[in-house]
Design a protein around this nucleic acid. Structure first.
Length: 383
DNA sequence: CATGCGTGGGC
DNA sequence: TGCCCAAGCAT
């Protein structure tokens, strides 16, 4: 019933919406590095980078990326380490891995040419419903919808979709998006929806300047604040870790490579151990006790297991707090000198260990923002 | 299908 | 400052 209601109510509106919004876009659309008659590769790279990430953040990363990897073939032939280095700092590192894998798939299975069909695009790692629609409409000029967070917000407000657009009302949203798409010029219209969502129809709407306000459901009913229905947020887990800056007799620093499917997968860091993980004040208090009492013992055991012979040792009293989507992390830093430089086998969180020059960290070895913060705490010399 | 996965910017 | 978010996808 709900679907039928929205379908009939929105049919007339959809054409006006498409036409009016496109008119606004042709005058007011943003100029962006990936918008000048883009190749499918350029659309792909930009769309993956833009997932959950702001345009201003993406621009410099995109420019650098296109310089180094101008096409699918150059990306497919690259080393994953170099791919991650270009991505370092952007977050959600699995996206970089999927881009790399996807490039190989396109070269090996599609003769280096992007498939045009949505169904085929969806088979490429990291390309989901939205990105497939974006590539098909922006690069191949197909009249298909591309529903991202902006489209969810703009469409749910304009057409008055009151329920959960990620749940029960998903079909309604998709049906309306298809209706809008059916009037053509989807490359423009889809980008118009995003630009409107990024400017006038953001979290707080500026309806006075909006070309769609005349027929907008949310504007008419003063519901822009409450649409779309907000996502449920999960409480963050608190995590307490200790990192070790360990220096060998030859002045090398021990670096560990995180397992590729883990948090910050594939990036390098001072080795860390997790002391505790949980939620609530009681847990946090216990964790701080644990930190005081068993921090050194944990490290001694860790070093012993790795045949590392510790010489000097010191707790820096310094720590950083770092927030991830689902984790509130505190990392304390310990620093020490050891008498040997053993080869260390992969284990647990880490798939590789290496003794490196301090100034290679971040240039030769890709690191996260968390690791940058930890390095700033280090008081030992820089070599 | 609910959950895991980063970061920098805005208020 | 602390909280909320911003062009999703895979499992």
């Amino acid at each position: 019933m709900a679907l039928l209601h929205f379908f009939f109510a929105s049919m007339k509106q959809a054409q006006w919406f498409s036409h009016t919004l496109r008119g606004w876009f042709l005058k007011n659309g943003r100029t962006l590095p990936w918008r000048n008659n883009p190749t499918p590769y350029q659309v792909w790279v930009s769309e993956i980078m833009l997932q959950q990430t702001q345009v201003v953040t993406v621009i410099p990363y995109y420019e650098r990326w296109i310089q180094v990897f101008p096409d699918v073939k150059s990306l497919a032939g690259a080393a994953i380490e170099d791919v991650l280095k270009l991505w370092a700092g952007l977050g959600y590192y699995r996206r970089a891995r999927y881009l790399h894998e996807g490039a190989k798939v396109i070269v090996e299975q599609y003769c280096g040419e992007f498939p045009h069909e949505i169904r085929e695009l969806r088979k490429i790692p990291g390309i989901g419903a939205y990105t497939a629609g974006a590539i098909a409409s922006f690069a191949f000029k197909q009249d298909v919808p591309a529903i991202d967070g902006n489209a969810e917000r703009v469409l749910s407000r304009f057409f008055g979709i009151l329920g959960d657009i990620r749940g029960t009302e998903r079909r309604v949203l998709e049906s309306i998006a298809s209706e809008v798409a059916s009037f053509g010029h989807c490359s423009d219209v889809n980008q118009a929806i995003m630009d409107l969502g990024a400017s006038l129809c953001g979290k707080s709407a500026q309806c006075a300047q909006c070309p769609l306000a005349d027929k907008c459901y949310a504007f008419e009913h003063q519901m822009t604040e409450s649409l779309p229905a907000p996502k449920v947020r999960i409480e963050k887990t608190d995590e307490f870790r200790v990192a070790l800056r360990l220096i060998s007799p030859f002045g090398k620093t021990l670096l560990a490579k995180r397992s590729k499917d883990a948090l910050l997968g594939g990036l390098w860091e001072f080795p860390m151990v997790t002391l505790s993980r949980g939620r609530g004040k009681e847990h946090r208090d216990n964790a701080l006790d644990l930190l005081r009492e068993s921090r050194d013992a944990r490290w001694r055991a860790w070093c012993h297991e790795k045949n590392l012979c510790l010489k000097e040792w010191h707790n820096t009293e310094k720590y950083i707090s770092h927030t991830f989507t689902h984790i509130q992390m505190r990392v304390d830093l310990d620093e020490g000198l050891c008498n040997n430089e053993p080869a260390i086998l992969p284990n647990g969180d880490y798939e590789d260990f290496r003794w490196v020059e301090y100034d290679e960290i971040g240039t030769k070895y890709p690191i996260s923002t968390l690791m940058k913060k930890i390095m700033r705490m280090s008081v030992l010399g820089e070599s």
